[in-house]
Amino acid sequence: MASLNTDMLAELKDIMEDDFAILVDTFVSDTDKRIDVFESSMDMADADALRKAAHGLKGSSSNIGAERLSKLSADLEVAAKEMAFHIAIDLIEDVKQEYHLVRAALLELK
């Protein structure tokens, strides 16, 4: 499974026209912030902050065609909600890994 849904991204590029590059930059900077939140909330065992950040990433990654990233965020959201930090810690690693792939692919498309 590829990191990005290419059909969807083509459509998105068409819709956003010149703003596509800004969209990618915005997504990247937002996601960077969220990953910081994942780590700080784990340190403080703040399940609620973790859940909200995961929920946000779930939505924004789905909109940008990063389906697997969205799926992993959804799992993270569930884990946070159930306060299953031992599962969350692994999922955060998976999310970070997938995000690197997505970011690289997006920056290439810019």
Partner: peptide
Amino acid sequence: DDNASDRMILRAL
């Protein structure tokens, strides 16, 4: 929406 990228997409649509 607090998600800037989601807002951008919706605004364009």
